[in-house]
Nucleic acid binder design. Structure first.
Lengths: 190, 190
DNA sequence: TTTATTTCTTAATCTTGATTAAGATTTTTC
DNA sequence: GAAAAATCTTAATCAAGATTAAGAAATAAA
């Protein structure tokens, strides 16, 4: 686990062993059972979470009462509700484990402290945020220019492991289409 | 101009007059005529740009040959192609002035230097990135749960100045709908 | 101030993908 | 291993919004 995290960090910034150790001392391990919640609507999100192993979904309930998945998180991703965390407002989303998941929790207070002690950590998170933004911008591009069928096939080729780990109706929700339509696409492919 | 920028920065971080002056010394003023390009497909993006006054669009040409607007930039927004900037790869997008626009250019080399001298600048950009991410995530939520008509009306109420400054067919593109459909929505409202 | 270019509108037709509903299958839980 | 819960499939009907095409209006340029 430690080794994974160190490697992950060093993809973004240069940092000494001691500094990684300091960073780690702020992280609190946490385990979620399948279907357990990390955050529920109405609560204020106070931490960032690094997924060491498992799978998470972030979703909200739309005006029609449907669960709308905004995104997934898997191994080596950070997940949090930035809106609630940054503005310190009640969250509008749910964060829930899709399978048994192991996390490292970084409370926002610790994060702020850490950034003052180690400016590289601020750099790390700035860079992660840029990558995350690039990913979501790319997704918006796809949403606009691909048909539902192209969207689904592109997603599955790019993330083959998801088809195994995540129920189909959740992938449908993430891609903004009905589960019945996904069934139709799959039937067509045979 | 200076005053604006100082105020803008102080919304995110605490910083002294001298430090703001140092930051400003790295910024290069630039003016774009209407329809002039800041970046074209194939070029590598090397700077971040702060819009002091004007209006910009970032778009790409999709597989069907249509211009797809990813987002707009107006007064007091940073704009750049993060994908090209961060990965140092050829850009897939165009950044173009919709009206006469004044910018401050921050070359990425200067930015890196600056972040080492003033860690608060790294914090500033980390926080801006988080806000930008919150905005785009919210937009994805809207894209999924609103109908085209709701999407258009929500956008116009939230950004009334855009209806004045930006041609309707560009708003249609930004919202992922045809210009004809926007005409239909408007006709209905009367 | 006339011409050229951009932008917007209307209307008919067509397509993608939603909705509804019912049953089948798979996975969990007791 | 039986019952309950979660997930997936199929098919018929329907609606939102795209496409096509043509003309009108507004802006910009000469």
């Amino acid at each position: 686990m430690n080794q994974n995290l160190t490697e992950y960090i060093r993809r973004y910034i240069s940092i000494s062993e001691d500094e990684v150790a300091l960073f780690q001392s702020y992280l609190m391990p946490k385990t979620l059972k399948k279907r357990e919640f990390l955050l529920k609507e109405g609560k204020i999100c106070k931490s960032r979470y690094y997924i060491t192993k498992g799978c998470i979904r972030l979703y909200y309930i739309d005006t029609k009462g449907n669960e709308q998945i905004i995104h997934f998180g898997i191994d080596n991703w950070w997940i949090t509700d930035y809106e609630s965390l940054v503005n310190e407002t009640a969250s509008e989303v749910y964060i829930q484990a899709i399978e048994k998941t192991e996390l490292l929790e970084l409370p926002e207070k610790s994060f702020d402290e850490l950034c003052h002690k180690l400016p590289q950590i601020e750099r790390l998170f700035r860079k992660i945020m840029e990558k995350t933004y690039i990913a979501i911008q790319k997704r918006v591009g796809y949403l606009y220019s691909l048909t539902g069928e192209e969207l689904f096939n592109t997603f599955i080729s790019a993330n083959p492991e998801f088809a195994q780990r995540v129920p189909q109706y959740m992938i449908a929700s993430y891609l903004g289409m009905s589960p019945e339509f996904v069934s139709k696409i799959k039937a067509k492919k045979k």
